[in-house]
Amino acid sequence: MEDKTKLELKKTATKVRMGIITAVSSAGSGHPGGSLSLADILTFLYFKEMNIDPKNPKNPDRDRFVLSKGHCTPALYSTLANRGFFPVEDLADFRQVSSYLEGHPNMDKVPGVDMSTGSLGQGISAAVGMAMAGKLDNKNYRVYAALGDGELEEGQVWEAAMCASHYKLDNLTAFIDYNGLQIDGNITEVMNPEPIADKFAAFGWNVISINAHNFDEIEQAVNKAKAFKGKPTAIVAHSIKGKGVSYMENQAGWHGSAPKKEQAEQAQAELESYLKSL
């Protein structure tokens, strides 16, 4: 990836992170930790990779993205807003009764959202259905999904994984946001889903492991997935929960709680300072 492109992606991802903090702190609730860990992947997909058009969000030929870890709406909404699907200012109304920005993704209300999700394990199944439709219609669009590592504890993920390899859905790529933490603590202590890469390989997937915060690695993995025929690809993305906000990094406590006013100001100041340093 060219340095200039990478710099722009880093800047955009930082703005996406600032939008995450705005949304969650305005709402007084929401899920910042897993949103911040996913921000670089979403930025790459929506600003570099996916064939999407904010002016025509329902284009039948578009690439699709399913946020299977549906609680991370702050990341998805901030990415979509920064990409021009709706005003960035609306992030401040996240989760309010007057707002269209539901706590979990709603495909009928929010422009750019391809599937309503929230009950873990179902989004990946829906992504499988989208990939099947693409094959049926001989369309070239690709389907992306993002799952949490804790989400892998849901049995339906593995039903979907079996189905995707059975039908050779090489137009499907699933990112596993492997930040190692879930609400109640370390994933290995709550209910160990490891070894994650081996499990997807055993279910018949092409598996690539990357650093979720390195745009070169994200791009290379996505390109490998596109070139790989006959199997879906799982990109096991090693990430840092709360990435970009010092006091949130690697803290399970920030899975589903919002920063107070001063904490939010500190987070924004840190992100602002990083943005200027780029």
């Binding site: 179902q122 829906a126 499988v128 259905g129 989208m130 990939a131 979907a160």
Partner: peptide, 24 residues
């Protein structure tokens, strides 16, 4: 146009949703 999803009914319903979201 007939797909056996196997003994996985929860998956089948959400796969159906994904197909329907693409116009099926």
């Amino acid at each position: 146009r007939h797909f056996n999803i196997g003994i996985a009914e929860g998956n089948m319903m959400a796969v159906a949703a994904g197909l329907a979201s693409c116009g099926k």
